[in-house]
Amino acid sequence: MPDLSDIIYWLKVLYFVCQASILVPVVAGLLWRRRLPRNLRILVTCCLMWLLLMGFSEYARLAWHNNNGVNELISILEFWFIGAAYYHTLQFSWQRYFPLIGTVFTGLALFDFFVLSHLWQAITQTLIFNDTYTTLLKHILIIGLVLLYFEQILLELRSTSLWQDAMFVVSVGFLLFYSSTITLFLTSHLIPGPELRLAYAGLSVVNLGLHLLLTRAFWLASRPGRALG
C-alpha cells in the first residue's frame, strides 16, 4: 500500500494543479474579451481577480503564515462580480435591487468578519479564522442567482441546445461548485481526517471542472452570432 505521506503529497499536487487551472479561463477570456458580451466580460475580470488574489493569498500563507484578510477580500469581490454578471443576464423586474442586496451582503460580511468572527485578531495573532455566516450567505445567494437563471430559461422558448448557451454552461459550473462547497462546509466536522483530505481533493476536481466550463463559455460567447441567456 502507498505510504500516507505519499498520498498527502499527491493530494497537494492535485490541489495546486486544480488551483492553477484558473490560468486557462483567464487566458481564454483575455484573448476573446473584445468579442464577449458584458456579462461574460465581468466573469473574465472575476477570473483575473481569482488568479491574482489567490496567488497573493498563497504567498501570504507561505511568507507570513497568515492569509486571512486576503481570503475575505476574495469572498466579497467574488460575490460582487458574479452578482454583476447575473444582473446583466436576468430579466426580472426586481433585479434593480441587486446593488442594494450586494451592499447589504458586504455590510453583513464586514460585521461578521470584524465583530462576530474577530478577523483583526486572527490577522494580528495568526489564528485560524472561520467566516461561517458569510460563507453560508454567499453560497446561498449565488446558488439562488443560478436557480433564478434556470427559471428564466425555462420560461423562454429555445430553438438551440442549452449546452450551446454560454451563460447556461457558466451556471452549471457555479451550481456544481457552490453546492459541493457548501455541502462539504456543513459536513466537514462529521468526516474523519483522512477522508476529509479526500473530500477536499474531490472539491479541487470540481473547481477544475468550473474553470473548464468557464473556458468553454468564453469560447461559445466569442463565436459570431452566438446568442446568450
Results as ranks from 00 to 15, higher is better:
residue 1 M to W: 11
residue 4 L to D: 13
residue 6 D to G: 03
residue 7 I to K: 02
residue 7 I to C: 06
residue 9 Y to R: 14
residue 9 Y to D: 08
residue 9 Y to T: 15
residue 10 W to C: 01
residue 17 V to M: 11
residue 19 Q to I: 14
residue 20 A to Q: 07
residue 21 S to D: 08
residue 21 S to T: 14
residue 23 L to F: 08
residue 24 V to E: 00
residue 25 P to M: 10
residue 25 P to G: 03
residue 29 G to K: 05
residue 30 L to C: 09
residue 31 L to S: 12
residue 31 L to H: 15
residue 37 P to S: 13
residue 38 R to I: 15
residue 38 R to L: 11
residue 39 N to L: 00
residue 40 L to Q: 01
residue 40 L to F: 13
residue 42 I to S: 06
residue 43 L to K: 10
residue 44 V to F: 00
residue 46 C to Q: 13
residue 49 M to G: 11
residue 50 W to E: 14
residue 52 L to R: 08
residue 56 F to P: 03
residue 57 S to R: 13
residue 57 S to Q: 08
residue 65 H to R: 15
residue 66 N to A: 10
residue 66 N to R: 15
residue 67 N to H: 09
residue 67 N to Q: 06
residue 68 N to S: 07
residue 68 N to K: 10
residue 71 N to M: 14
residue 76 I to N: 09
residue 78 E to R: 02
residue 79 F to E: 02
residue 80 W to N: 09
residue 81 F to Q: 09
residue 82 I to P: 07
residue 82 I to R: 02
residue 82 I to Y: 06
residue 85 A to P: 07
residue 85 A to Y: 04
residue 86 Y to P: 04
residue 89 T to S: 01
residue 92 F to M: 12
residue 93 S to L: 12
residue 94 W to F: 04
residue 95 Q to Y: 12
residue 98 F to N: 00
residue 100 L to S: 07
residue 106 T to F: 13
residue 107 G to H: 01
residue 111 F to E: 15
residue 117 S to A: 15
residue 118 H to M: 03
residue 120 W to F: 13
residue 120 W to G: 12
residue 121 Q to M: 04
residue 123 I to G: 00
residue 123 I to F: 08
residue 125 Q to I: 08
residue 125 Q to M: 08
residue 125 Q to E: 09
residue 126 T to A: 14
residue 129 F to M: 02
residue 129 F to Y: 13
residue 130 N to E: 15
residue 131 D to N: 15
residue 132 T to K: 15
residue 133 Y to V: 14
residue 134 T to H: 08
residue 134 T to K: 06
residue 137 L to G: 03
residue 137 L to P: 09
residue 139 H to C: 13
residue 145 L to G: 00
residue 147 L to Q: 09
residue 149 Y to P: 09
residue 153 I to A: 02
residue 153 I to G: 11
residue 155 L to F: 12
residue 156 E to R: 15
residue 158 R to F: 05
residue 158 R to P: 08
residue 159 S to R: 14
residue 161 S to I: 07
residue 161 S to W: 12
residue 161 S to K: 05
residue 162 L to M: 07
residue 162 L to Q: 11
residue 164 Q to C: 12
residue 165 D to C: 04
residue 165 D to N: 04
residue 172 V to T: 00
residue 172 V to R: 05
residue 174 F to L: 15
residue 176 L to W: 10
residue 179 S to F: 13
residue 181 T to G: 04
residue 181 T to S: 13
residue 183 T to H: 01
residue 184 L to F: 11
residue 185 F to L: 04
residue 185 F to C: 02
residue 187 T to N: 02
residue 188 S to Q: 15
residue 188 S to N: 11
residue 192 P to C: 06
residue 195 E to K: 10
residue 195 E to R: 11
residue 196 L to Y: 05
residue 197 R to Y: 14
residue 199 A to N: 00
residue 200 Y to H: 07
residue 202 G to N: 04
residue 204 S to N: 13
residue 207 N to F: 05
residue 207 N to H: 07
residue 209 G to I: 09
residue 211 H to Q: 03
residue 212 L to I: 00
residue 212 L to Q: 12
residue 215 T to W: 07
residue 216 R to Q: 14
residue 216 R to K: 14
residue 219 W to C: 09
residue 221 A to S: 08
residue 221 A to W: 01
residue 223 R to S: 07
residue 224 P to F: 08
residue 225 G to H: 06
residue 225 G to W: 04
residue 229 G to P: 10
residue 229 G to D: 01
